[in-house]
Write a protein that binds this DNA or RNA. Sequence first.
DNA 1: AATCACTTGCTTGTTGACAGCAAGTAACTC
DNA 2: GAGTTACTTGCTGTCAACAAGCAAGTGATT
Lengths: 181, 181
Amino acid sequence: MALVLEHGTDKTTLAMIGEKAGYSRGLATYRFGSKGGLYDALCKSISRHWLEYLKRGVGDKVGIEAMCAALDTIYEFEQESPQEARALEILYCGAASPSAEYQQTAVGIRRRQKSDVAEWVRRGQEAGQVRAGVDPDEVATQYVAYISGMTYLWMMSPDTFDFSVSNEVMKRHLKDSLAAS
Amino acid sequence: MALVLEHGTDKTTLAMIGEKAGYSRGLATYRFGSKGGLYDALCKSISRHWLEYLKRGVGDKVGIEAMCAALDTIYEFEQESPQEARALEILYCGAASPSAEYQQTAVGIRRRQKSDVAEWVRRGQEAGQVRAGVDPDEVATQYVAYISGMTYLWMMSPDTFDFSVSNEVMKRHLKDSLAAS
DNA sequence: AATCACTTGCTTGTTGACAGCAAGTAACTC
DNA sequence: GAGTTACTTGCTGTCAACAAGCAAGTGATT
């Protein structure tokens, strides 16, 4: 992860990884089969940690509350584990390449995020907290798109992008557009 | 562009590029200095074309109308020039890597997008079309984040992502949240 | 009109770095 | 003591980058 943060996925070599870990140049290849395999494993590992984090942050909230809590949790994760957050973002971006071996992993994670959000909205509707008229899948798509874009922009230029302000705006927005009257 | 679409930036070789163009393996390096230099040039070239397209689509509209027209134009561009749209997206993602030589190019384009949108909002406010209370920069940030995320998701899984539906939802959203009462 | 100095546009030879594979080795396990 | 596990080392093909070339101009000079 440290090497990916410093050099990016392409300029990091398997030899550097093995030696940084205190082993030989061949270890990484031996363990993960290929460079892509290693990044796939790293992507899954960080995602797992992130999902635990998210679970704890959202708890058993539903609807708007869950969506707002998730935004707060993203911010916290980024504050407390900036290296993981940033590395995960770099990996997601790398997954855009047609040759990326962990493309399906990244796609799967996004798909799961989307279905989780849709479920929050549905539960929110059942609880009478979210307007009955909205389409959970549409909301989920917009929400996930916003999060993807926001984390991407933050990674590209952390200094010109205020995560917390952006999140507050979004939370206000969610309440305005989704709350049952 | 064709090679990037097929193999991604990393698995495309400079030799393949030169030979596909009907020249020698050394031409691409000779012309662009390095692989990164070539991708920088490609990124700028496609961006230029996209900006012409956008200019024509938005015309002299301002405020909400300009923002909705831009969404429509993105969709049109993607329909009419899917190769360019997709290649640009791959390049933007590649720019996330700390080692990418065209990182600044990509950051600059996003920054410009954001300031353009903020300007649309300000003009919309002057024209009394957009509520005076909203902060143009906040709106622009949310809007650009949404677009970045949406194009990313579309690229990752074009089949499970309905661009046009998503755009209609967003346009409705923009009107609801920004229109002067 | 012939020569010479220099540029442009492209090719080819070469080097060092890298991913991935295969054959090893050494310690540990049953 | 036979096999397994965990790791290393040697090797090969591929690649980016560089440097040296070369052929076809261009333009000034005599």
